[in-house]
Design a protein around this nucleic acid. Structure first.
Lengths: 340, 340
DNA sequence: CTGAAAGCGCTAACAT
DNA sequence: ATGTTAGCGCTTTCAG
């Protein structure tokens, strides 16, 4: 590591004290302090000449701010999250913050590692797509005073802010759509049922069916894990388990990546989509538009969620806010495409 | 922000000095210093009781290490990069580092913002997927002494380490494949030609054609930007510009996202893939496997590249290494699927 | 308008 | 085997 010039160097070169340098550089207008143009220019010149840049670590030690926000996601290879992250980054950038990204690989250990890092105050704020952290973990976070926003309904009530869309309603919209298309034997590829999201979507599926006078049938439910791996195989054997006349006429998957995998299996077994079996997902990942046939799904403005999450955090950081936790809900939209 | 306990608190509670606490906690074995079990236990207990955690900022100020690695990518929504990041994260985690992720949105400004942040020493090392940074930018980086590895051939020669695969060879493999399948009128959707990667792939395309005695035809080249946007439309009008008998019989796109967009356009115009027109890409993004028909492409172990990039950086960090820049080359593989 | 001085929490010689 | 001490580079009262 090369030796960097410090404020002291700048101060000496400009012939002023270090405090003055600090003052000029942090150019906050609040005070009644005024620096003469001459002094200011000398300082700025010295900065230029020495290629001086503030040491963010030293500043952080003093100000207790890292200007870092940490984002926990369960699976970076699920396109939902990069979109969220992009939105977050845009907002973070505007607020002069950077993003630490952490992929938990959907494991409790990954989430705990993140928690541990967070508790070390590696960041000024947290965005949490968590499936496994529990109330007592969140308690630690709350106690630490690090502004945190959860993505999805799961953390709502635990004391942190939350951005989410109404899961039950979203699922309802899909089922309504499917039923309106004449589908009656609607199967569900559930997400990880140890997670609230998985449970909620399954629950929503059952609720919606009943609304239409359809009795949920356990045989029509397969559990997935929200991930790509193994879904095609599972759906394949799922489909194989039905007598020809009793085949489901629709598959509703708890997210798009599983829906797309399901499509693969459906086609592999020689059924047509949507003629024989309609397929729907949730998330509206970019891929959903590009698969064949394009996937009907539920979309919402994930990038906006990312931005809002950051803005909620930054708000709390800025105002050292202690107001009650807030749940910001985002609208969703049924995106009808040819898979249904 | 809540008040955290400090080493001083721990020291007082354990009845020892702060140095001893520091020593026990950083448990480096190097010295001839030995702490009695009794003392150690008292300290550990105090740590426990006080829920003490080191202040990474303070440590960083002292040690001049942030334990952060910054990753610049041009486009997080291109699945190539999340995979790279995951690989990087795994390796980073093992080496006790975290990742700052920065999406430049493929803009020079984005890249310069990143550079500026990097020059502020926000991270101990950098992974750079850069299209626009120039030699003089890199010079600053080099001068700063921050270990840096470039992704792709572009930065090779500028003084930083590099991970890459042989672009020319990779393109060659695709063209060989297409020709062996009897294709002769092979079109190319080029990447951004202001970038080395774009140029290299176009160049490789021409070279490979000539090897097979095919004369490159400028009419068969469309320029894209490596991004999804607008490609389908462009390919659509590209195809429309040909008389029925003169249609290309293959399209080779400079990356998968463009190839997939091209497939859309091809189908939209009523041509069959691969019967009428074969389509190939480069990258082997997950999506390539799931589109219909699955896309023939060039794959390499991107996750491994991410890991290796980190390991090269960590190596330099650990040893304050000044050895010559290294170019680590990764093998690629032609993945034949039904689109060709 | 500018300077002096204290101290953020930690590490690493150097003492003892 | 443990304690003392001197900063790391910066911000921020408080005096002048």
């Amino acid at each position: 590591m090369k030796l960097r010039s410090t404020q002291k160097d700048v101060a000496e070169m400009a012939g002023v004290s270090r405090a003055t340098v600090s003052y000029v550089l942090s150019k906050r207008q609040d005070g009644n302090i005024r620096i003469s143009d001459d002094t200011r220019n000398r300082i700025l010149q010295a900065v230029e000449k020495l290629e001086y840049r503030v040491n963010v670590t030293a500043r952080g030690l003093k100000t207790k701010r890292t200007h870092l926000l940490a984002v926990l996601v369960p699976d970076l290879s699920n396109p939902f999250y990069p979109v969220l992250i992009r939105g977050a980054q845009k907002a973070a950038y505007e607020a002069d913050h950077r993003l630490i990204v952490f992929d938990s690989f959907s494991t409790p250990e990954g989430e705990r590692d993140f928690l541990e890092a967070a508790l070390h105050h590696i960041a000024d704020g947290l965005i949490l797509s968590s499936f496994y952290l529990e109330q007592r973990d969140i308690k630690h976070l709350l106690a630490s005073g690090i502004p945190t926003v959860g993505v999805g309904p799961r953390l709502w009530g635990s004391g942190v802010d939350v951005v989410q869309t109404d899961q039950l309603q979203a699922v309802r919209a899909v089922i309504d759509h499917l039923v309106s298309r004449g589908r009656r034997r609607i199967a569900h590829i559930a997400g990880d049922l140890t997670t609230l999201n998985g449970q909620l979507r399954l629950e929503g599926y059952r609720l919606a069916l009943r609304v239409h006078g359809l009795e949920p049938n356990e045989r029509l439910v397969v559990e997935g894990k929200f991930r790509r791996e193994g879904i095609a195989e599972r759906v394949d054997s799922f489909l194989a388990s039905f007598a020809p006349g009793e085949l489901p006429d629709a598959i509703f998957a708890a997210n798009d990546v599983m829906a797309i995998e399901a499509m693969k299996a459906v086609r592999r077994r020689g059924y047509r989509i949507p003629d024989d079996i309609a397929v729907c997902g949730i998330d509206n990942i970019p891929e959903a538009e590009y698969v064949e046939p394009p996937l009907t799904t539920i979309g919402n403005d994930v990038e906006l969620m990312g931005r809002e999450a950051v803005s909620m955090i930054v708000d709390r950081i800025r105002h050292d806010s202690v107001k009650d936790p807030e749940c910001r809900e985002f609208p969703f939209e049924l995106i009808e495409r040819n898979s249904s």
